[in-house]
């Protein structure tokens, strides 16, 4: 139990129960999130990923089943649910639309202030969070609405990081960003994880991001867990992934094609770097 950050036990969630709009979003999920790991959550639209994310920090109360965060059943005392939100910080999709304060620094301070921290602690956390996401300190007095899309997103991310959650949950953190913005956001997440040793849960549609950043991958389909394991395990099931409309990273497909054409490369390659190493081995290592 001691290396478990969060756990879902037989959790189900039904939207608009007992109306014509009733929809089972999550159906009997048992998942354990290991401490200090980056767990990727993938699945088709409507597979229940976002619902799982919102149940992990107590925004949604499961229709049935139990949610444990840091070893505690979070719905044991519903009045205490705010504490869970500081322990398991959730960054929503397109979080830049939640910015509201006059300055970047004050917006980032919203979370820590709600925690009731002293002012000095708040300002040191704000500065720290801005450093995590790579925002220059000179931006702190600017209006968040004057920033670029990628910068806004980083401000929003910093707003959750400033609460220093032990579990950081991100719902498609890189959606709609250009490749550079994407790298900036995701490397911010990695920096936060390395500094604080936090557990990270990341929802994404990009197999490449999953392969690059995740230690564990959970594939969801139709509200149920479909595959779970290390990227090696999950991406070796290319056929099962394709069955639910997902795929393996492009580079893995490339390597499979190379193998098919008779080159002796490894089949379990999921990142461009690993592929490069494989191909270098093939060419004798002097070029490329």
């Amino acid at each position: 139990m001691e290396n478990t950050a969060a756990k879902l036990c037989g959790v189900s969630y039904i939207y608009s129960e007992k109306t014509p709009f009733e929809k089972v979003a999550v159906d009997g999920v048992d998942v354990t999130l290991e401490e200090g790991m980056v767990t990727g959550l993938i699945g088709h639209t409507g597979s229940g990923k976002s619902t799982v994310a919102q149940m992990l920090n107590g925004l949604l109360r499961p229709t049935s089943g139990e949610v444990y965060v840091l070893g505690r059943n979070i719905w044991e005392n519903p009045k205490d649910i705010r504490r869970v939100r500081f322990e398991a910080g959730l960054v929503f999709q397109y979080p830049e639309y939640q910015l509201f304060e006059e300055t970047v620094a004050r917006d980032i301070a919203f979370g820590p202030r709600n925690m009731g921290l002293p002012e000095e602690e708040i300002s040191s956390r704000v500065a720290e969070a801005m450093a995590f996401v790579g925002l220059d300190a000179s931006l702190s007095e600017k209006s968040p609405f004057d920033l670029s899309g990628g910068q806004k997103r980083r401000v929003a991310l910093a707003g959750v990081m400033a609460m220093q959650p032990k579990i950081l949950i991100l719902d498609e953190p890189a959606a709609g960003l250009d490749p550079r913005g994407r790298d900036e956001i995701l490397s911010g997440v990695v920096r936060y994880k390395e500094r604080t040793g936090a557990t990270v849960v990341m929802i994404s549609h990009s197999m490449e991001d999953m392969a690059r950043y995740c230690d564990r991958i959970l594939v969801m389909n139709d509200g149920k867990p479909y595959l779970y394991g290390t990227p090696e395990v999950v991406f070796s099931e290319a056929e099962r992934l394709e069955k639910v409309g997902l795929s393996v990273p492009q580079i893995t497909r490339l390597m499979a094609e190379l193998r098919r054409r008779g080159y002796p490369v490894s089949a379990s390659v999921y990142t461009v770097e690993a592929a490069l190493a494989e191909i270098r081995k093939l060419t004798g290592g002097d070029r490329a």
Partner: peptide, 29 residues
């Protein structure tokens, strides 16, 4: 509202004035 709740906003307790003020982070966005 959910996003601000995730940052610890509290819409359901406090006096009327406090609750009205708690809505600012929702209304502006």
């Amino acid at each position: 509202m959910n996003a601000q709740k995730a940052r610890g906003a509290d819409f359901s307790t406090g006096s009327l004035g406090q609750r009205a003020k708690a809505l600012i982070p929702v209304l502006i966005p």
